[in-house]
Design a protein around this nucleic acid. Structure first.
Lengths: 204, 204
DNA sequence: AGATAAACATACCGGTCGGTATACTCGCAG
DNA sequence: CTGCGAGTATACCGACCGGTATGTTTATCT
């Protein structure tokens, strides 16, 4: 289930990555030096460069790990809280996001990383896009399994609301953003269900 | 109309701020040093520190300027393209955003700045929130002037889509995000109009 | 003419950056 | 017992960081 970031991750490498992940997310990529990571991970710069090659390599590993973590978290949350297809399953993703944000109060780590990496040819940039695409396609899949018409478009619309909620919740300092998003997505899904049933009625 | 950033902005100070604004937006806050700003603005570090006090002061001035710029741009765009209240006036804000993004391809400068400033007690943080609140309230105002019920909630929902579109367009590498957002907002406004007319019919 | 502010030029400060080099210890598998 | 991978410790590199100091030139306004 959990994707392994490196074929061989030594215990210290794990500790380094976890420490770096926390610091990168909390303070930003450029704000955190390699020496600080070494100190807080209780290791040395030498070991970091032996394991990850460069600071950019460590940043890439951080993004990879965070990407996998969010996918695993969202998938597990939906499976646990809404095992069956239906409108509530879509909303469960927003609930997963809500509880995720409670522990990740600095917003979307990928958007934040994009702010510092865009324009450079950094290896981590495709991972950022990958995460956005995964979340979008996840919504599309949850709508498709309900046989809702135009699931692709509707899924993209839900993803827009999803991303907007994170921005408004953090940079926008708007605590009700999550509730607004949930209400709006609830209506969007209901519209999709209505469209499906209307079509079924026409056909049958 | 245009808010002056400083009571007295010397010509060189203007040049410094414009140069810094371009560099900060394009490469990030920490990625750009004061010396580079001085070089590209064809001035000296001394003059920068004389005019802005510190790099943080310059960053704050940048955010203030960008905030005012976006407000002026959006307001002027709506006034020019949709002088009268109505559904198209709300969509005109998204059109303004669309043309704004064509020249600002690195996403929302405030979200990007938030990525680097959050957690610090930086003076610029309130300006970031201010911009998000302004855009949200702008939508609320455009809906209110149409006498649409629940304009506050609907305006917040439109703002969610607005912010989501920027993220999907840039970090998400999804070119159709703007069109999706426009279509969705068009339906949200239409729903509002329908709710207004339904209520009017009930009352009248 | 004198005063003032703005900008220029340059050198310097302590500190940190990413990254490298050298040399050592430890545990384990052949 | 030997070789090796992993990790430690520390010193070092050049480059750059934000910020300061000193002094000069230029233009404007009384």
């Amino acid at each position: 289930m959990t994707t392994v970031t490196q074929p061989t991750m030594t215990p210290t490498a794990h500790r380094i990555l976890d420490t770096a992940a926390g610091l990168f997310y909390e303070h930003g990529l450029r704000a955190v030096g390699v020496e600080r990571i070494a100190d807080e991970a209780e290791t040395t710069k030498k070991t970091i460069y032996d394991r990850f090659g460069s600071k950019d390599g460590l940043i890439t590993a951080y993004l990879r790990q965070r990407c996998d973590r969010w996918h695993d978290y969202a998938t597990a949350y939906v499976k646990e809280h809404q095992p069956e297809p239906g409108p509530d399953r879509v909303l469960a993703v927003l609930d997963a996001l809500d509880s995720w944000m409670a522990v990740n109060s600095r917003g979307c780590g990928f958007v934040n990383a994009y702010a510092e990496l865009a324009g450079t040819g950094h290896e981590g940039l495709p991972i950022i896009a990958e995460e956005k695409i995964w979340t979008r396609d996840h919504y599309v899949a949850l709508l498709s399994e309900m046989d809702i018409p135009d699931a692709a478009r509707r899924g993209r619309e839900v993803a827009l609301v999803h991303e907007g909620a994170i921005v408004q919740l953090t940079a926008g300092a708007q605590p009700e953003a999550m509730a607004d998003a949930r209400a709006l997505v609830g209506r969007l899904v209901a519209d999709g269900v209505a469209a499906r049933d209307a079509t079924a009625g026409t056909v049958g």
